[in-house]
Design a protein around this nucleic acid. Sequence first.
DNA 1: AATTTGCCCAACCGCAGACTC
DNA 2: GGAGTCTGCGGTTGGGCAAAT
Length: 199
Amino acid sequence: MVPVSSRSSKKDVNRGSWTAEEDQKLAQVIEIHGPRRWKSIATKAGLKRCGKSCRLRWMNYLRPNIKRGNISDQEEDLILRLHKLLGNRWSLIAGRLPGRTDNEIKNYWNSHLSKKMKQNRAVSKTVQGSTEQKNIKANDVNALTIEREDAFKLEENFNFGFNGGQFFNCSSSEQGPLNLEWMNKFLEMDESWFTLHDI
DNA sequence: AATTTGCCCAACCGCAGACTC
DNA sequence: GGAGTCTGCGGTTGGGCAAAT
């Protein structure tokens, strides 16, 4: 990353990569005061950073239980399915992947999965063209494309059916492998929803 | 060995909604 | 109720690095 000094344009504000020393100071202050009031955290820690930057660093790197390393096949599958359901609502998607951050998932999507999607669509188009456009609706669903509006409708739909708020707001700390399994079961329901609504 | 290219990912930016006074 | 501030989100940027040339 960029040396901290090279991106410092505004007076008295550090930009760019965080140093180990800054991380340590930030973690210490958050341990005492908790992860809120980011502006005052930055001041208390004696960091020349804006509150926003401190929050981001904490959320994406310093927070406990952050899972680093490769995204597993199971996680990738879940991301694909949740994206189909919710669109680019990365924070919601991240909320269902224990230890993963919205930034990480967004990056993973942009660098890996968006390419896969394009490939899938290309293949799907070829198949469709050669089969007299039979079963177009089913192919569209399989190509993992869904209009955002439909995703919202779908969200509303299950919010009505059960406690959707609770579903989406679970903290990642209470997640585990079993939860992923349960999530996959839930996602099977959205397939049924498409069928039911003839999408 | 040097240079170029493409990918990855940490960090920044702008905006909208929530919160506080 | 309104203004100002804070927080959270999604989009974008750009440096580092490995692979390709």
